[in-house]
Amino acid sequence: MQPSPAEIARTLAAGHLPAVAHIACRPGPVPVRHVTDNQGRVLLLVPAEGTVATALRPQDGNDDTALVLDIRDVPPMASSPSLGRVWISGWAAQLTGDDARAAALDYADTDACGDLLDIGESQALYRMDVAEVRYERNENLVEIDPDDYAEAAPDPLRNIEFDLIADLADHHMSEMSDYVRRQLGKAARPGDEPKVVRLDRYGFLVRMGGRSARLAFPRPVTDRHDLAHLLHPILCRRCTAHEETAA
């Protein structure tokens, strides 16, 4: 198993990566700070009197403003392949009162920044309803149904992917190398040193010289603790063998 395009799009849009906005009838693009709520709607946190807030002010009697959010993946390692790029199109409107307070809590679930305390004063919060999602990787463009995008869940390991890969490389290289060779069997070539270069809820991508292989977990993992539980038999084979002997 591996992530679907809708899941990758939700992961890229979650709020852990830099984004730029192309705002209708305005010069740009402009960098924006954002997250997505549990329905995949984009929340934009901007200075109330800044360039972005000025560009987002509705015109011609409208209540909202059309824009496109452009988000590129930033691979965790120099040797890691990119997950690609996502464009999210829709209409953004400023939130006030109870709507702003509820959305601020949603924002804090991903990024509990201090500026959330200044919404309504020096900061403004906008919500963008998603109308179109496009995902590009390796020059292949996929149109994602907005409902599929909304129903998908961001990968729970993306924000800690660098830490996880670095930990495997620093402390478990030998165990991971043995595990990968066992899984690949005859496909593993002598002299190739397997390196984990990407990791998600479904498995990990390993690079060996000029080749790559994806190895799947027995089931999708839910968080870092669940991943540690799943990898324990791989990384602590001696402990597992001792436990089985004792039993």
Results as ranks from 00 to 15, higher is better:
132 E>S: 11
72 R>Q: 10
38 N>D: 14
147 D>N: 11
34 H>W: 01
186 K>I: 11
76 P>M: 09
125 L>K: 02
76 P>I: 04
241 A>N: 12
227 L>M: 06
182 R>Q: 13
64 D>Y: 08
22 H>M: 10
108 A>I: 02
153 A>V: 11
36 T>S: 11
126 Y>M: 06
244 E>R: 13
192 D>P: 07
165 I>E: 01
128 M>C: 14
163 D>K: 12
191 G>K: 11
7 E>C: 01
129 D>I: 08
93 A>D: 06
152 A>E: 00
37 D>M: 04
24 A>Y: 11
239 C>H: 13
148 D>M: 04
156 P>L: 01
127 R>Y: 08
206 V>F: 03
56 L>N: 00
172 H>E: 06
223 D>V: 07
211 R>V: 13
236 C>T: 14
77 M>T: 14
202 Y>P: 04
169 A>Q: 08
65 T>Q: 03
64 D>W: 11
215 L>H: 06
20 V>G: 02
202 Y>C: 12
22 H>G: 09
119 I>H: 03
106 D>T: 12
130 V>T: 06
162 F>W: 09
44 L>E: 06
179 Y>C: 10
58 P>V: 01
164 L>P: 00
171 H>A: 11
210 G>L: 09
134 R>P: 08
76 P>R: 03
221 V>C: 00
62 N>W: 15
177 S>P: 03
53 A>M: 05
216 A>V: 12
158 R>E: 08
238 R>H: 12
82 S>Y: 02
61 G>P: 05
226 D>G: 02
48 A>C: 09
85 R>T: 09
156 P>Q: 03
81 P>T: 02
192 D>K: 11
232 H>W: 09
183 Q>K: 15
240 T>P: 07
44 L>T: 05
227 L>K: 06
124 A>E: 02
174 S>F: 14
220 P>G: 01
204 F>L: 13
164 L>Q: 05
189 R>W: 12
231 L>N: 05
208 M>I: 10
245 T>E: 14
23 I>L: 04
53 A>N: 06
30 V>I: 10
100 A>H: 03
116 L>E: 03
190 P>T: 13
116 L>T: 04
153 A>W: 09
213 A>F: 13
52 V>F: 00
47 P>I: 07
32 V>S: 03
183 Q>C: 15
198 R>F: 04
1 M>H: 14
42 V>R: 04
233 P>V: 06
226 D>E: 01
118 D>E: 11
103 A>C: 07
133 V>Y: 01
125 L>H: 01
199 L>S: 00
152 A>H: 01
202 Y>L: 12
120 G>Y: 07
242 H>A: 15
112 A>Y: 11
4 S>P: 05
171 H>L: 10
162 F>M: 13
41 R>A: 07
46 V>T: 13
222 T>N: 12
59 Q>T: 15
182 R>H: 14
164 L>N: 01
192 D>T: 14
243 E>K: 12
61 G>Q: 10
10 R>A: 09
233 P>M: 04
